[in-house]
Simulated scan of single mutants.
Amino acid sequence: MTSRSSDTRAHPTAGRRRLSALVACLAFVFCCGQAAATRFRHIPLGNAVRDADVVVLGEVAVKEPLDPEHDVLVIKVGAMLKGDVAGKATIRVVSPGGRRIVIGFDGFKEGQQGIWLITKMKNRDAYYITMHPVHFQPTTAQRIIELVVAGTADAGQEMPQILREADGRARQVALAELCGPAGRAAALPLLLEWAAAPRERDAEIGTNVRGAAIHHIAKACDEAPADLPRRALAALDRVLAREPEKTESAWVIAEAYAAAGTIAKKHLGYAEAGAERFQANDFYPLEPRYHSNPEALRAAAPRHGRAVAAVKALRGWWATKAAEQTTPDK
């Protein structure tokens, strides 16, 4: 009697059909959880690492089409971060491709290096990776993923080095997964620097990283030395002094205003803070290119006016408060 595995070798086309069928089932289950083809639901890295059978750092040595919607990647194993591939130098990974390519996922390429969070395919000597960005991480995230695999929730004294050596995407992961109280304290000088950095440094730091830094500064004010709220307000005031979408991202300004208001109210007695929460679009300039039509422009004007007034009031209060200091902020 012929075994299933020998039958696959004798009839490679049939084997590929069965592999494609398994892949289609996995893809269907994954896609059912997506809100839309090009919008991925948020999956924390910790959850993705926990659910992955294998996490491997490697490089795409070969890429071949499997069917109209999938490719087979031969991954050269560089390091195992989770799981076991029985000492193999290469592994096969089925990935979305062909007609499955969508905005937000442009497929994998030969020579591409990274960290792969993959699932073992049942009864097959192959793995599967989805198109969700959490399942493929840059090589700069290696230490971050090692800590996540180890169950670490706070990188502590390692945090500044991790942030400096990572790229923008890996920094976002580190700030989301590993920046607990000890990590925040260790990285505080860097967080303050990045939060207040000019927009010209966004390509270097990452706009989302700056927003995350602002969030962590607000949290650190509940944990750190008593002088931090003033130092934080001084940094955030530099952001609020800029013009939305001209010299600063409107989103960063909205995040800075929310954090500054929280810090001012909780730690420095600014009672007027937090009366209204503003979003990035409330800070967009009242120009047609930021609004779909004249009616939308008119509708946006009142909230824009309140947002601008709120920032002006907060900055005016802070200027008075800062002038009361006997020593300058550093």
Rank of each mutant, 00 (worst) to 15 (best):
M1H: 13
S5I: 11
A10G: 03
C25V: 13
A27M: 09
C31V: 13
Q34D: 11
A35T: 12
R41P: 01
I43S: 06
L45E: 05
G46H: 14
G46L: 05
G46T: 14
R50G: 13
D51Q: 13
D51I: 00
D51V: 00
V56R: 06
L57I: 02
L66C: 10
D67T: 10
L73K: 03
L73M: 05
V74T: 15
V74M: 10
K76D: 03
K76I: 00
G78N: 06
A79E: 15
K82Q: 11
D84P: 07
A86P: 00
A89F: 00
T90I: 04
G98L: 12
R99H: 14
V102Y: 03
G104I: 04
D106K: 10
K109M: 13
E110Y: 02
G111T: 08
Q113H: 13
I115M: 08
I118F: 05
I118A: 07
T119M: 14
M121T: 08
D125M: 00
P133N: 05
P133T: 04
V134P: 02
H135V: 00
Q137W: 05
P138F: 12
R143G: 05
E146I: 02
V149W: 07
M159K: 05
P160F: 06
Q161K: 12
E165H: 06
A166Y: 06
R169L: 11
A170F: 05
A174S: 03
E177P: 06
L178K: 04
G180Q: 06
G180S: 09
A182R: 13
G183Y: 02
G183D: 02
R184L: 02
A186R: 14
A187I: 04
L190H: 06
E200P: 00
R201G: 03
R210N: 02
H216R: 06
D222K: 15
E223R: 03
P229T: 07
R230P: 01
L233P: 09
A234S: 14
A234G: 13
L240V: 01
E248V: 09
V252R: 11
I253P: 00
I253Q: 04
A254M: 03
Y257R: 14
G261R: 11
G261W: 13
K265N: 08
H267C: 07
Y270A: 15
A273T: 02
A275M: 06
E276P: 00
R277S: 09
F278R: 08
F278H: 09
Q279S: 15
N281L: 12
F283S: 10
F283W: 10
F283H: 11
S292L: 14
P294W: 04
P294L: 04
E295M: 00
P302I: 04
G305Q: 04
G305H: 01
R306H: 09
A309T: 02
R315Q: 08
W317Q: 09
A323Q: 12
Q325P: 00
Q325T: 04
